[in-house]
Design a binder for these strands. Structure first.
Lengths: 237, 237
DNA sequence: CGCACGGTTCGGCGGGCGCCGAAGTGTGTC
DNA sequence: GACACACTTCGGCGCCCGCCGAACCGTGCG
């Protein structure tokens, strides 16, 4: 043991940051990868601005959030992809029980189905769209899931041919599995997942719907995905 | 958002289970993959038996621990590898700050170095031993880390040739990276990591030191690792 | 300038939770 | 059957923490 117990306080403190419903709601909201203002988060979480200000202080001090002050606004976003991964992992562990009580109202149901069709998960694609892309990559021998989760050499070539640069940053893995909470299956995350998502949004393969995390595949996107990955456009609708 | 906020309470509740120092200490202790009695954990954590009993109740109710009652003993262990992975992930996220304050006493230091040399991490190998094995597999083209984390076909062959059966169980990935908290680098986890560790202990490649998680490579193990993976025995001492 | 507005600080309130020791239950031992 | 022992239940204590509203800063705008 020895040094291991030195970790218990740290672990407890980190978990403590996530152990509050209001803070959890903030982190989940910030999973969209964008920066929110303190006020937006307060409204989203349904608490007073003063309350949320304190929460932000703790999350920033704990290293989970990065802040950026602009004028009289305080923007916060997840500190890095490690934090995003942590929140995703934790959330997916919870999903089983959350899956029990699903859509209730009509609006929630329709918004939910848009989210289920396609959305961003921090900085990569998720939902049926994310799964479809991941499955297509796997089916074409570009991504290997049977023995772990990694791109193949052919996969590297595919990204190159598609004009998607994969630049290694720090210690973030090139490919990583992220468990999808609607589909209950892994989809592509990591550097490759982020690059692909960015490319998809940049080139107009898909566009964001409203201010939510949901995304929609464009006709041009359907053509591209059909040609490059042999994805049946119908499966994305 | 919609259904996403339904997750916030669940996430907070899960995190809340980890957010107590005593419970965290228990979970970290249970990372050795074995079953502990309530009394052992109480002594380990330094709290009254009654206090720990309540903690166990919460952890079991929360699905993090599985219990098994034998006579007047209550044995608990981590519920499954998903929980182990969660605790590992969380702990490794904390490691940076914990790394600052390291060994102090002589005994802690020597025990620490035994742990650093080789240990089990839930059900797979970690420490310098774990890293050495992982690096060797990678160097021989049996494991691919540059594009993600997965065994190669040659890797599957190697396991087969070594007589290590890899039987897929449920949704657990065959190969997965687990971040080592002493080495700050990933080592092999998942089904393959567990099978390799089990094989190493079963065939006497290494043995446990005392009742701790630390393991030591035997002479026979040095021969085997040298022959099968071209690992220099000196690097393991 | 003055006002509106986003954000922060502070005091105070209330609830929740971890802790203990004492008493209770069941199991194994002599 | 009596005793030891592992664990659990219960009551009570004290602390911590999230919440709010009110007062306070600073920025941006008319």
């Amino acid at each position: 043991m020895t040094e291991k117990e030195a970790e218990a306080p740290g672990l407890a403190r980190l978990a403590g940051l996530l152990a509050d419903e209001t803070r959890a709601a903030c982190l989940l909201a910030l999973l969209d990868g964008r920066a929110w203002t303190a006020g937006e988060l307060a409204r989203h979480a349904g608490v007073a601005a003063s309350t949320l200000s304190e929460h932000l202080g703790k999350l920033v001090a704990g290293g989970l959030l990065a802040e950026e002050r602009q004028g009289r606004h305080r923007y916060v976003r997840l500190a890095d992809d490690r934090v995003a991964q942590l929140v995703e992992d934790l959330a997916s562990q919870v999903a089983p029980e959350a899956a029990a009580r699903r859509p209730r109202t009509l609006r929630a149901s329709s918004a939910g189905s848009a989210m289920a069709r396609g959305r961003t998960c921090y900085d990569h694609l998720a939902g049926r769209l994310g799964i479809a892309v991941t499955d297509a990559l796997t089916g074409l021998g570009l991504l290997r899931q049977d023995t772990g989760f990694a791109l193949t050499d052919a996969g590297l070539g595919w990204f190159d041919a598609a004009g998607i640069r994969l630049r290694p940053t720090g210690r973030r893995p090139l490919a990583r599995a992220c468990l999808d909470w609607t589909e209950r299956r892994p989809h592509l995350a990591g550097v490759a997942g982020a690059a692909l998502c960015r490319h998809a949004l940049d080139t107009g393969w898909c566009v964001r719907i409203g201010s939510e995390r949901a995304v929609k595949v464009t006709p041009a996107g359907e053509d591209a995905l059909s040609e490059l990955l042999r994805i049946d456009p119908v499966s994305l609708r």
